[in-house]
Write a protein that binds this DNA or RNA. Structure first.
Length: 510
RNA sequence: GGCUGGGUAGCUCAGCUGGUUAGAGCACGGCACUCAUAAUGCCGGGGUCGCGGGUUCGAGUCCCGCCCCAGCUACCA
């Protein structure tokens, strides 16, 4: 079976899970589920990024040890992902002992393989003891840190390790040119090409004052204890998750897909491949940079009060509706907007009326006119036209043109709308009154049941719970998620015993 | 400032290498139907395709200029 190792960015353990985190996890989960149903051997990894100054500060502010703090945050994230139905196979944390030793092993390997790639350099700048950080000019006002007016800044010299990123300029240019799909969508690829064209700079990758970090494995000449820069710690999670450096890592690496936010494409498309190349390890196949969910047209901002309670959004119409709305409304290759007005509109129009009601009416008629047994029926124009939409659905999801999850849903819904139209055109309630129309009625109901079964399969990666409910109502074998897309063309529910249950998407009482 | 992408019906967007009266979904109005979660289907109103030039027999679709929006412009993550 072909491997499909997919990851999301690991979330920074400095706050609660929010809509942006959820969007990425739900999108990646849908891609993962899609590939399982397409027959791939999927490994889906998510996790937490738990080191760094901010985490240490937040923990200190709450009066707890950093480890205790991140344990709590990680538990909170996992609870959320379970609630949203994220089918991850692995949850990695950068404080896992295996990750820490893996990162140190990787750094040592780079040092061994490309000894020239790490070098020491002194860095000078204004240092704010309040922040425990070097400050840039724009963070300084009147000679003081904008966050700590009462303290004076200290001109400080610090000796760090640098990574010779500049050496990989040519390598990265070739990588991107030879693998046009390495960074997607196209707009992000262009940005990275522009960035590289400007010329890369070496980056400092260790910090003298960073205590809450993986100890940098090489010793520095001034004898200071160096902590590993958070990204040099975080990026390798994709690799250490495979077990690196123990031998089984080769079974999984390289990753087929890194799903990340557009704000960190640079790190995944430039720094990460350069690190791997320095270690002479395989490069991941693709980085997909999704956009952001905005609220009322604005970016999230804690200070401006632009935020959304995830629990409230999920409870409004249920988890599956929430997943559907995000993936339908926000293009997976660009930004989109979240609003409750729009959510309600889509819930009513798309889920309750178009899809849920189609299932209700079809199943009700099979029970009423055919005793609940799906009649055998020849292929119809409904099947033929759906086949076209199904091909488009796959094109949107299989990676050949990117991961356009919103497009996949659009094509699935074109089937539902065709189904409703077909019901009215065939008017099975009339066919049922005329014994001479018995065969025609079989054809109508058979074709519709076939379409519903098809829809349950198509929708399963997006709405696993509701797809399963529909599958059960249809009386399908096993479970929907164990169906394979390869069998979709020949999927035929003739003979299944349907059972009409509660509406899939009940409208809230007004 | 530079680079990238975008500005098309009230809203969200399709419109590929230029070509008949500019499309879809939602929302809105009318009609039909009754299997269904007062659901569905059909019909309709509604757009000077950001602005101004240009190329062309013909431009939303190509070229130039301008205006506006978003993103990127690297060591907080």
């Amino acid at each position: 079976m072909t491997r499909f190792y997919i990851t999301t960015a690991i979330d920074y353990a400095n706050g609660d899970p929010h809509l942006g985190h959820a969007f990425e996890k739900i999108g990646a989960d849908t891609i993962a589920r899609y590939h399982r149903m397409a027959g791939f051997d999927v490994h889906f990894c998510i996790g937490m990024d738990e080191h760094g100054q901010k985490v240490a500060q937040t923990a200190a502010a709450q009066g707890v040890e950093p480890q205790q703090f991140v344990d709590g945050v990680a538990a909170q994230f996992r609870t959320m992902w379970d609630r949203v139905g994220i089918s991850y196979d692995q949850f990695i944390r950068t404080t896992d002992p295996a990750h820490k030793s893996g990162v140190r092993a990787l750094i040592k390997r780079i040092a061994d393989t490309s000894p020239d790639d790490f070098y020491e350099k002194a860095y000078e700048g204004w240092y704010c003891v309040g922040c425990e950080l070097f400050k840039r000019d724009d963070e300084i006002a009147d000679g003081r840190c904008v966050l700590h007016h009462t303290r004076t800044l200290e001109w400080t010299k610090e000796r760090n390790f640098f990574f010779r990123l500049t050496k990989y300029q040519g390598f990265l240019e070739r990588l991107i040119a030879e693998h046009p799909d390495f960074i997607r969508p196209e707009s992000r690829r262009n940005e990275i090409l522009g960035l590289i064209a400007q010329g890369l700079e070496d980056i400092s990758i260790s910090r003298a004052r960073l205590a809450w970090a993986i100890p940098f494995p090489l010793s520095i000449s001034d004898g200071s204890a160096q902590g590993t820069w958070v990204w040099f710690d975080a990026l390798p999670n994709y690799l250490t998750a495979t077990g690196y450096p123990s031998k089984e890592w080769k079974d999984r690496w390289p990753a087929q897909l890194h799903v990340v936010g557009k704000d960190i494409t640079r790190l995944h498309a430039v720094v990460w491949p350069a690190m791997l190349q320095a270690a002479e390890l395989p490069i991941p196949e693709r980085v997909w940079a999704h956009g952001f969910v905005q609220l009322g047209g604005e970016r999230f901002s804690k200070s401006a009060g632009v935020k959304l309670d995830l629990g409230e959004a999920i409870d409004r119409h249920g988890v599956d509706a929430f997943r559907y709305f995000l993936l339908r409304e926000v293009p997976f290759d660009a930004d989109g907007n979240f609003s409750f007005e729009r959510f309600d509109d889509r819930f009513n129009a798309d889920l309750a009326n178009a899809f849920g009601n189609l299932a209700s009416r079809v199943i009700a008629m099979i029970e009423r006119y055919r005793g609940g047994i799906v009649p055998a029926a020849p292929q119809t124009e409904l099947d033929a036209q759906d086949a076209v939409a199904v091909a488009e659905y796959h094109k949107a999801l299989d990676g050949s043109t990117g991961y356009l999850l919103h497009e996949g849903l659009r094509h699935a819904w074109s089937c539902a709308s065709r189904g409703n139209e077909y019901v009215d055109r065939r008017a099975p309630w009339k066919q049922a009154k005329d014994p001479a129309e018995a065969a025609a009625l079989d054809e109508t109901l058979g074709a519709l049941a076939r379409q519903l079964a098809r829809l349950a399969v198509l929708v399963a990666p997006y709405m696993p719970t509701k797809a399963a409910e529909l599958w059960t109502q249809l009386g399908g074998p096993e479970t929907v998620d164990r169906q394979r897309f390869a069998g979709l063309a020949t999927l035929d529910p003739a003979g299944w015993r349907v059972t009409k249950g509660a509406p899939l998407f009940p409208k809230p009482a007004l």
